[in-house]
Design a protein around this nucleic acid. Structure first.
Lengths: 337, 337
DNA sequence: AATAGGTATCGAAGCGCTTCGACAACCTAT
DNA sequence: ATAGGTTGTCGAAGCGCTTCGATACCTATT
């Protein structure tokens, strides 16, 4: 392993000079800089991460806590994780992957050991058990998702309330009076996951304002669960003409079932999905949808965290405005025979 | 931040004694050990990761390189990543998430900086550009996936060759003579991804042995691509009665299309999928499938890597035997009218 | 001509831990 | 009673880096 000292010797300067070339924290003459850089290249020098962390008390690592669960939005989670990792690299940080397995203790461990300079938490619940710990340490952090109480926290999320409202609006504008919402798995609501409840909130209040009828039913993914859920919905509200789906793994089963029952999309039923664009465009019907901006969320989270590291941070809630893309699955409500 | 020295003082022992209590590398009297452990608890001490890494030249971190691409198997990748992270924790390691973004340089950077003690590479191509670098460093590593040349490498993978063979066998045994294979996206084959080619290999050689006709077509995910691919297949081989799918995002579109064309599964067409169990059980038809054992692969990879750290490692290729689970999507070939 | 202010570099201290050799203190077998 | 072995503990030396004065030189100002 090549060390700083070896580079210094090779370049004929002192170790501190090499360090300053690397960090740019003091001015170095062009001549010296070039000599040092050349030595670094020739020797194939890489600074030792541990030594660096010890001396500077900064690890240049961001911890990312992803949920262990696999009952929802897996591809989105993955996309966010990759976006975080990629964005972090552009700021000179690496990402440490923490699973839910360890629970809240992971927060303590990471903060205590100086393993990471800060952390990003995904899949935050409304009353998340990690939050008290987070507030207790002075560990800089950013949440992806919105807890009930955001005081003293920085959060990034899609504005799910607005998303719900937007979906209802779009359908109402086309004359749909009876709208059904196919939601996430029941477990997601039982956990009081922020985004699910907020979406529901937006859906309900906007439909109240617009005077349309709304029926919400949670639904596990998969064909069978969807079949049961859809049957119940149509039983309870036979006049349903608009459906909003917020569950990736229910999308395709829903479309298959509607097709099978001879209900045409969008002639008989309009469908709006809340899902990644990839799902919306690859479905058997091009779905009108509100996208989950995974990339953007990951990027924002990293940028806010890095800002905090540099002292320019502020506690703030960043809600990304939803965008509804009209594709082929929505149209005017059929006129009642 | 509490330090070792503070713990030592609090417990009335020397720093080295505390260190030995922590590492267990020298015997410590029960009395002393308890006093030290008590002090650790009372002070809320966490060893500093950087200092530890510097002094011991072990970081207790495993680097995991995931592909950046999102054109295939995203949920599987995520599942493997989580399995790796979880398994790593049980051995006292954390996981650093590296994306493909940085390319092969990441290998150099991680190896050079001592950031990680070893690395796990996912999504290995047959002739992967990271491999020469990996062989050049003495960085312990494990691949998930199989390159063309495995000398000096440790690899873990599902035996995709056997998987292909198994699928053909199952269909042939039921009397299917004309089998179509719906493969991964063309890009996957162009990249020479090991698993895709190996599967194909197994499919081809077994079908040759069994004397059944096999038609392989790559296919991008999504409904439209699937529609085109299926039409071509049925055009070219109208007598096709067995279909093998190796592309998660083609599964549901395929089933929808078959349904739409009035081809019953499994009465008219038998379908075997190569996909995670979750997909197979949640599809609109319970799919006979060969599962991708993501958990097992992640766990194996970590265990082999840890074994290498401890000097018990060996270069070896671990192929996990495929298991075909019969569900409702396969049956005897229809007798030709 | 003397001084102030920059700029470029060095030396040394120290970050918090691991680990090696030393050494008491005790036990056991002669 | 003594040599030889254990066992438990300590002190000190570093691991490779950052960073804080200090210093030496150079240019601009009075």
């Amino acid at each position: 392993m090549v060390t700083l000292a070896e580079v210094a010797q090779h370049a004929g300067v002192s170790a501190s000079t090499v360090s300053y070339v690397l960090s740019g924290k003091r001015s170095i003459s062009a001549n010296t800089r070039q000599r040092v850089e050349r030595s670094i290249r020739e020797l194939g020098y890489h600074p030792n991460a541990g030594a660096r962390a010890l001396a500077s008390s900064r690890s240049n690592i961001i911890a990312l806590m992803v949920p262990l669960r696999t009952d929802m939005y897996v591809p989105v989670m993955m996309e966010i994780a990759i976006a975080v990792a990629t964005a972090a690299r552009t700021h000179g940080y690496d990402v440490l992957l923490l699973t839910g397995e360890e629970g809240p203790d992971a927060v303590r461990r990471v903060a205590g050991s100086g393993l990471a300079d800060g952390m990003i938490l995904m899949d935050v619940e409304l009353d998340d058990e990690r939050l008290p710990l987070l507030r207790a340490t002075d560990q800089p952090s950013v949440l992806i998702g919105l807890p009930a109480d955001t005081t003293g926290l920085t959060c990034v999320d899609l504005d799910f309330r607005a998303t719900g409202a937007l979906c209802v609006e779009h359908l109402a504008k086309q004359g749909h009076q009876d709208i059904a919402v196919i939601g996430e798995a029941p477990a997601v609501y039982e956990r009081h996951t922020g985004f699910a409840e907020r979406t529901l909130d937006g859906l309900r209040s906007r439909s109240r304002e617009l005077g349309v009828r709304l029926l919400h039913r949670p639904c596990d993914g998969g064909y069978d669960a969807m079949a049961v859920t859809l049957a119940r919905i149509l039983d309870e509200r036979p006049g349903t003409t608009g459906i909003i789906v917020q569950n990736e793994s229910a999308v395709e089963p829903l479309l298959a079932l509607l097709r099978q029952q001879g209900r045409a999309v969008p002639e008989d039923v309009s469908v709006v999905a809340i899902c990644p664009d990839q799902v919306a465009t690859q479905a058997s019907v091009r779905l009108t949808s509100v996208a989950i901006p995974a990339q953007e969320m990951g990027r924002h989270a990293v940028e806010h965290l890095v800002a905090k590291f540099e002292g320019r941070g502020s506690d703030e809630v960043v809600l990304i405005a939803p965008e509804l893309t009209v594709r082929g699955s929505t149209g005017p409500a059929p006129t009642r025979p």
